[in-house]
Nucleic acid binder design. Structure first.
Length: 561
DNA sequence: TTAGGGTTAG
């Protein structure tokens, strides 16, 4: 029998607990008074504190757990929940399986935590397993659990499964809609996400901040500015612009749709307080559009506002210098980071290598890689290789390729770049050697594709495909465009074609190649410039890294990208 | 005592 005063004493101790040593003191008290094995409620609370609080320690929680003779459902839930939100969610799933093996019945909450673990560990099979367990246990009427299932299925990449659970839900609330909308948006199905959002609006269901975040993300991916405008109107009508997170997403949407001015309008007129993400998002917006000077100015504004820039701020401003060709400014900022207390990560190094590389300062870029205190990653070597390709540096290209091979990169692009450098110098034997290596390694080719959005519908084109319902008309139009830009002096850039083939064939390879999902290539860039002139049209192209705005035969990047 | 959906990144 636990006395009332003991209960008060322990509860107070647990409430006031704020360090691991407090936890240990309470634990020793529980053990010495024999309450550890017999007072389930105190023990579970202690375990929860250890597994979940900021001062707790998961491995210590696991130790406590291992001393429990017969863990209760609460104990299991605490440990599973702790691991589910840790950097190692797979362990939560392992504990869940141990729970089943120990013949301890999971409750709906256990399933919820375990599903979250599956989502974070990308564990598809386990997600299905828990779903069937949920059905067998009679938990399917639980709205919260159904929503977790929808979310879990999306995160593990089973969108059909997610849609099925959603469709079969007898009742849905805004969170269930959000799980699917955001799931689709994050899973690169922006069309579907936006359709669901519109369906929600048609049904006159009230969308909340999370819903619009999903819808905005979808618009950003599609470059669907008209749809984005509609979402922004909805946000203002519903006063969701009082939430900083929503404003941030709007700024991001306008930037990614190619309208950095609109993004800046939203940024300047915000009614709520800006946070560091707001500043970073705006900074990245300027970076994407090659507005280096504005980005540097914004960095000064951040400091004047008394806000501390973080590593992402510096990544943004370096990226901006990069796209604007502000080499010295970027280099200076990179060097000033340490004195500002910002620890450089691999992305900062990637950015500076790109900056120097694109300016042709290849040896300096290589020196930076060699002097890095952290190990360079694949992207970094690819960046250097790309710069070597631009400036025709065979020696460094071979070093970068060697590193990439050592790191196990099987990207087709790496081989293509090296091969292109050899091709530029007509070293066909070396080209052949690279091609052979490509075949042996069975390199993975990322197909080039482009999107365009018309009336809220996304049209996707893969290089040379015939999947679009109007593909014949489209190709006919492309032929006409090619004919017309040749009148404006178009000469296909054939230098960057892998194979050693005749000029005529090379041109054929390039002529339907309009926009790349990776960085825009020299030929595409030249074609679009001429199209903008021949048809007097402004064309906005977003490639993997930035925006190009073509007008009257010139591009906003001033041919520096 | 313990549940669901979320913004910036080379």
């Amino acid at each position: 029998m636990i006395t009332k005063s003991t209960t008060i004493f322990i509860n107070t101790a647990i409430q006031k607990c704020n360090s691991l040593s407090h936890i240990k003191q309470i634990q020793s008290h529980l053990i010495s008074t024999n309450l550890f094995q017999f007072s389930l409620s105190f023990r579970s609370k202690l375990l929860e504190l250890t597994a979940l609080s900021s001062y707790g320690d998961l491995s210590y929680a696991t130790l406590i757990f291992s001393f429990i003779n017969h863990p209760s459902t609460y104990d299991w839930n605490a440990i599973i929940r702790g691991y589910a939100q840790s950097s190692n969610p797979q362990i939560a799933i392992t504990h869940f399986i141990s729970m089943l093996r120990a013949s301890q019945k999971p409750d709906a909450v256990t399933c919820s935590f375990s599903l979250k673990a599956c989502a974070r560990a990308l564990a598809k099979v386990e997600c299905h397993l828990i779903h069937s367990l949920v059905i067998r246990s009679g938990f399917m009427a639980d709205l919260l659990l159904q929503t977790t299932l929808v979310d879990g299925y999306c995160k593990v990449g089973d969108f059909r499964g997610a849609k099925k659970v959603f469709d079969e839900m007898p009742k849905r609330d805004v969170a269930s809609w959000n799980a699917l909308i955001c799931g689709f948006a994050q899973g690169s199905f922006p069309n579907e996400a936006l359709e669901l959002f519109n369906e929600m609006c048609r049904m006159r269901l009230k969308a909340d901040d999370v819903t619009v975040l999903g819808a905005l993300s979808a618009c950003s991916q599609m470059g669907a500015v008209k749809e984005g405008d509609k979402v922004w109107c909805y946000i203002m009508e519903e006063k969701l612009d009082m939430k900083v997170i929503v404003c941030n997403a709007v700024i991001d949407m306008y930037s990614k749709c190619g309208f950095v001015d609109k993004a800046y309008d939203v940024f300047r007129n915000m009614k709520c307080k800006k946070n560091i993400v707001t500043w970073n998002t705006m900074l990245m917006g300027f970076a994407m559009h090659g507005n280096g000077v504005e980005a540097i100015k914004l960095l000064n504004d951040i400091e004047n506002e008394g806000i501390s820039p973080d590593p992402i701020t510096y990544l943004g401003v370096l990226c901006a210098c990069n796209h604007a060709g502000l080499v010295d400014e970027g280099y200076q900022l990179f060097n000033s980071m340490e004195s500002k207390g910002i620890v450089r990560n691999v992305k900062h190094y990637g950015s500076i290598v790109d900056l120097l590389g694109r300016a042709g300062r290849l040896n300096e870029a290589y020196e930076i890689i060699n002097s890095m205190p952290i190990s360079p990653d694949i992207v970094l070597w690819q960046t250097l290789l790309g710069a070597c390709n631009t400036f025709g540096n065979i020696e460094l290209a071979e070093i970068a390729s060697q590193k990439l091979a050592e790191m196990g990169s099987d990207s087709c692009g790496d081989f293509v770049l090296l091969s292109n450098i050899y091709a530029t110098y007509k070293k066909w034997d070396d080209v052949g050697r690279v091609r052979k290596a490509m075949n042996i390694r069975d390199t993975k080719k990322v197909p080039g594709f482009s999107y365009t959005e018309v009336g809220g519908v996304l049209h996707k084109f893969i290089n040379g495909d015939q999947n679009h319902p109007s593909w014949k008309d489209i190709y006919r139009k492309l032929d006409e465009i090619m004919y017309r830009i040749k009148e404006h002096g178009y000469v296909p850039e054939t230098r960057f074609v892998l194979h050693d083939i005749g000029e005529e064939d090379k041109e054929h390879v390039l002529c339907y190649h309009i926009i790349k999902n990776l960085r825009i290539c020299v030929d595409c860039h030249a074609v679009i410039k001429l199209v903008s002139k021949a048809y007097s049209r402004e064309i906005i192209v977003r490639d993997r890294a930035r925006f190009h705005r073509f007008k009257e035969g010139t591009c906003s990047c001033r041919d520096y990208w």
